[in-house]
Design a protein around this nucleic acid. Structure first.
Length: 587
RNA sequence: GUCGCGGUAGCUCAACUGGAUAGAGCACCGGCCUUCUAAGCCGGGGGUUACGGGUUCGAUUCCUGUCCGCGACACCA
């Protein structure tokens, strides 16, 4: 496959650079696409970059570069403009090269070798399996899935991973919540806790346990509540009341474990597996798949957490204070030291996370990407510190923060607390807005920026969602191709030279840009760039569609236009596939 | 208080290593369906890029100060 036009152009400039100023031959050459079409198809600021180095007027350098550029059939003209830009106008046939490339390469058009088939792990979603996924998780899921597709397309060997927090207190609370609902359904009156999980799904799980085991798991209220401090008044929200509620909750968990014995493991496991299955099903329906579901509990069971802490101890990065064991993360730029083992002997979440990252690196990934909610940003320094402390290369870890989607309902911020049970679930959103609009809507914003998700608007305007604009372009092309009813495979041989109107050449040029967008998006971990690109491409297609007829009498012109349309369709498909959005043939 | 993200048209957002006259969609106004899908197209109005200073050939972009919004700052996960 011949090199694309942009790289050919870059190499022409490189030759000119070496003729004009060999000593500056290593200056990176950037070609950009000018906003203003009168500035040609590509432009470079190379002369301005050289100006300081060569101590010469940028326009003079630009002139010299232009005259030093080897003759090429690709170029219609190269001229100096503005403060020292060099603007390139491509010959029409050079622009049309991309159309043939799309038709020949098909679903592989746009793939690049950027990643060099290095192994990259992307860990995302990783929500606690304590209830349904909500709209905030949905954003991380959409981002991670699209990014994984994108990096695969850009030549990386991608592993998609979900870290299951199945070891902590939150899981105990879920188990307890389920058991309390079960007791309630069996007629044992115990006041339900404000800080337990409230959702209906907890009642459902309790009902399932009752069906499976009858009253076998029932214990008397007096025993369940034995030794608990009781609850403060419901309206109190001060720290003291909060502490008392937590103590009450923990006492109940301890009682549950003691009273149920081996059955506690069943309750715990039942709740976990139900929630995890629900979560997996939800994600699958959303087009989000994982290669690995990694258990936090396994890190404890295999002793890796303990080994990890020992390792840090041996390397002298730990100390004991107030009965707890601390990691001296300030050595590595963190603002304060962090506890890895609590006074009560239990490891913190941070400890297992260090072990998890050690495990990731030991699995031999060249690059590890963590997609975290933006609320975890304070966490980056300590994890990087721990990795460095273990003599691993922290630069191989990249953390992509996803800002929360802030929900608005009836013009008011909607609660996102899983515990309150008043959240909007991802499933509800998908059902009302549709998977395609959902995936695309999430992809329309840079991941590290706030997303105001107005539910009413998203629902009421679903017909105006830009995803339909793109899908509509695709459907229109399908319709024309059906009516043409020719042999698609023959289009790659069509004589495109008759495509000479500006809209057609602009579209061809836009198709070439797809490669650049893929590379750029992969480098920036920014799949949203693809969404913007697709909007542009669809827009140019719609304008052309309204201005010109494809099924004209002249067979040569007709086939050339059909070929162009087919190339647009293919490129739309390739882009939409990365975003996990479908491309219906009719709408 | 410290840290992170942000402040661009009435609203939601773009603007590629710092580039040339800051662009789209929605909303508003006016046009286009006897011809391949009107979920479309064409045209119009709408801006001191929050504010001050700095860096330079050039700043929405980088630095700095102020103001405003959101979030994070646990021996929680």
């Amino acid at each position: 496959m011949a090199k694309d036009v942009k790289s050919q152009l870059t190499s022409l400039l490189q030759q000119a650079l070496e003729r004009v100023a060999a000593e500056a031959g290593a200056t990176p050459i950037y070609l950009e696409r000018p906003r203003d079409p009168t500035h040609g198809d590509y432009a470079t600021n190379l002369a301005m970059q050289l100006a300081k180095l060569l101590k010469k007027n940028p326009r003079d350098i630009a002139m010299q570069l232009v005259s030093a550029i080897p003759a090429s059939v690709l170029l219609q003209k190269a001229e100096v403009a503005g403060a020292g830009f060099i603007n390139f106008t491509l010959a029409p046939h050079a622009k049309l090269q991309a159309v043939r490339a799309v038709l020949v390469e098909g679903e592989n058009y746009g793939r690049s070798t950027q990643g060099g088939w290095q192994k990259v792990q992307i860990e995302f979603v990783s929500a606690n399996p304590t209830g349904p996924l909500h709209v905030g998780h949905g954003r991380g899921a959409a981002y991670g899935a699209s990014l994984a597709n994108l990096l695969t397309f850009a030549g990386w060997d991608v592993t998609r991973e979900y870290y299951v927090n199945d070891a902590g207190r939150q899981m105990d609370i879920l188990g307890l919540s389920t058991w309390l609902r079960y007791l309630e359904q069996c007629g044992v009156a115990i006041p339900f806790l404000p800080n337990a999980y409230q959702g209906d799904y907890v009642r459902d799980m309790a009902a399932q346990m009752r069906v499976a085991h009858g009253d076998k798991l029932v214990r008397p209220a007096t025993q369940v509540l034995a030794g608990t401090p009781g609850l403060p008044e419901a309206e109190r929200s001060d720290d003291e009341a909060k502490r008392q509620r937590d103590q009450h909750l923990d006492a109940l968990i301890a009682n549950a474990k003691a009273l149920l014995g081996a059955d506690w493991a069943y309750v715990h496991h039942h709740a976990l597996s139900e929630q995890l299955a629900d979560c997996r099903n939800d994600l699958e329906e959303f087009g989000v798949d994982f290669d690995v579901w990694f258990s936090e509990k396994a890190l404890f069971d295999t002793g890796l957490v303990a080994r990890c802490v020992d390792l840090l101890e041996k390397k002298g990065h730990l100390y004991v204070q107030n009965g707890a064991r601390w990691f001296r993360s300030t050595t590595f730029g963190d603002e304060k030291d962090r506890v890895v083992q609590r006074e009560n002997g239990l490891y913190t979440y941070f400890a297992s996370d260090i072990a998890y990252h050690l495990n990731k690196f030991e699995r031999g990934f060249d690059k590890v990407i963590n997609i975290w909610g933006a609320d975890h940003h304070g966490y980056i320094a300590r994890v990087n510190g721990a990795i460095t402390a273990l003599d691993l290369d922290a630069s191989r870890l990249q953390v992509a923060l996803v800002q929360f989607a802030v929900l608005y309902r009836n013009g008011q911020k909607a609660s996102m607390s899983t515990r309150s049970g008043e959240f909007v679930t991802l499933r509800e959103l998908r059902k009302e807005v549709g998977n395609d609009a959902c995936r695309f809507f999430y992809a329309l914003r840079k991941s590290d920026q706030h997303l105001d998700f107005d539910l009413d608007l998203a629902k009421s305007q679903s017909n105006e969602n830009p995803v339909y604009y793109i899908q509509y372009a695709h459907a229109r092309i399908c319709s024309v191709l059906n009516q043409w009813a020719g042999d698609l495979a023959s289009l790659a041989e069509a004589d495109l030279g008759v495509l000479d109107n500006p809209r057609e050449l602009a579209i061809a040029s836009k198709l070439a840009e797809f490669r650049e967008v893929i590379d750029n998006a992969a480098r920036e971990l920014a799949p949203h760039l693809i969404a913007f690109y697709l909007k542009d491409l669809a827009g140019e297609f719609h304008a052309w569609y309204n201005a010109e007829r494809m099924l004209v009498d002249d067979p040569q012109l007709r086939d050339a236009r059909i070929a162009l349309a087919a190339a647009v369709r293919q490129t739309l498909r390739n882009g939409l596939a990365i975003l996990g959005v479908s491309y219906p043939e009719s709408m």
